[in-house]
Simulated scan of single mutants.
Amino acid sequence: MSQASVIVVGNEKGGAGKSTIAIHTAVALLHAGAKVAVLDLDLRQQTLGHFFANRAQWLSANNAVAPMPHVHPVSSDGAALAKATDEEALARFEEAFGECAEDADFVLIDTPGADTAISRAAHGLADLIVTPMNDSFVDFDMLGVVDPVTLELTRHSLYSETVWNSRKARAAKDRKMIDWVVLRNRLAPTEARNRKRLDERVQALSRKVGFRVGPGLRDRVIYRELFPFGLTIADLSPGIRPVAMSLQHVAARQELRAVMTALGINGLDGEMLAAE
């Protein structure tokens, strides 16, 4: 059996920032000295795969050096596999996972914004599930349901049910509890009544279904600027600087460090890796 730790970035709602969190988590682990394999289960979009393809090309063209993960496509034709039967998709996923987990310290899996058979299978393999959500009741609706009159939390919702089932199955199989962290992405810069209401519901749901709450990434220009180069704020150095530096980049790096600390990942600046 592989001893690789499995990190699944998941949320059944699109636009929550899953791929952005997956990219930054993978690169942070690489800079911490870990051997990382990545699987992109968004078979049509393939944002994670495109990012690391851009990274390899940019580094080669600029004679620059930065760590690379092992990128293992589930299929050479993701769009075709997306239309295949669940049995075929699961077989391809299991094969790809088995191959990429052999020599990795971490396997990072980016999932689509939808409920699919391979996404559910990935959740069942996770040691850590990371769920980004935007600062909105629209995103919270995938996690919990609130009363439309009182806004009180009434029950957990679709995606929470998926994680709950994965945790039960994993505990029954090997008595291991899957850790779950919800990251509050793209927080509004000022305090507002809606944000306070949302904070209270997120905390109430966390106690009910058992996830931890951590800080996410703000909607910063630098994250979008670096994407086409296949780079993150953690890569910037005297030898790698495709955009002009500013104080905002320092704030972004501190923000990324806070996210990684919430996930139990240290060593972003080259210290010894510690993952919990």
Rank of each mutant, 00 (worst) to 15 (best):
A80S: 12
A82V: 06
D105Q: 05
A91C: 12
G78P: 02
G98R: 03
D103C: 05
E87A: 14
D103I: 02
E94L: 08
G78R: 01
D110A: 05
G98T: 05
A80W: 06
D103F: 08
V107K: 00
A89W: 03
A101V: 05
A104E: 00
A79M: 15
D110P: 07
F106R: 02
A104S: 10
D103W: 04
G78L: 03
E94G: 06
K83T: 10
E102S: 13
V107M: 01
I109L: 01
A84H: 06
C100Y: 03
A80C: 04
E87Y: 10
E87I: 12
A89V: 03
P112Q: 13
T85C: 11
E94K: 13
A80N: 07
E95S: 14
A84E: 07
E95M: 15
E88F: 12
F93Y: 12
T85N: 10
A114I: 11
A101W: 03
G113A: 13
D86C: 10
L81W: 04
E102L: 13
A104Y: 00
T111H: 05
V107A: 02
R92F: 05
E95T: 15
R92Y: 09
G98C: 04
F106A: 02
F106H: 01
G78F: 04
E87R: 11
L81R: 02
A91M: 14
L81C: 06
G113W: 07
I109V: 04
G113R: 10
A114F: 14
L81F: 08
A91I: 11
A91T: 14
F106P: 00
F97N: 00
E88R: 14
A101I: 06
P112N: 13
E95K: 15
D86P: 09
D86A: 14
D103L: 08
K83A: 12
D103S: 10
D110C: 04
E87N: 13
G113S: 10
F97C: 06
A89E: 04
A84P: 05
A80Q: 10
G113V: 07
E99Y: 11
F106E: 00
A96M: 10
A91F: 13
E99I: 14
T111W: 08
T111P: 03
A89Y: 02
A114E: 13
E88A: 15
G78C: 04
T111A: 08
A82N: 11
V107W: 00
A82T: 09
K83C: 11
A114T: 15
I109E: 01
I109R: 00
G78A: 07
L81Q: 05
L81E: 06
A104P: 01
F97Y: 11
F93W: 03
A96K: 08
A80P: 01
A96H: 06
A96R: 08
L90A: 05
E87H: 12
R92S: 09
G78V: 05
A80R: 12
T111M: 11
E94S: 09
A82E: 09
E99R: 14
A96G: 06
T85A: 14
F97L: 09
V107F: 00
E102W: 05
A114R: 12
G98Q: 07
K83F: 10
K83D: 13
A79Y: 13
A80T: 08
E102N: 11
R92V: 06
D86I: 08
C100I: 06
E88Y: 11
T85P: 04
R92A: 12
K83Q: 15
A84G: 06
A84Y: 03
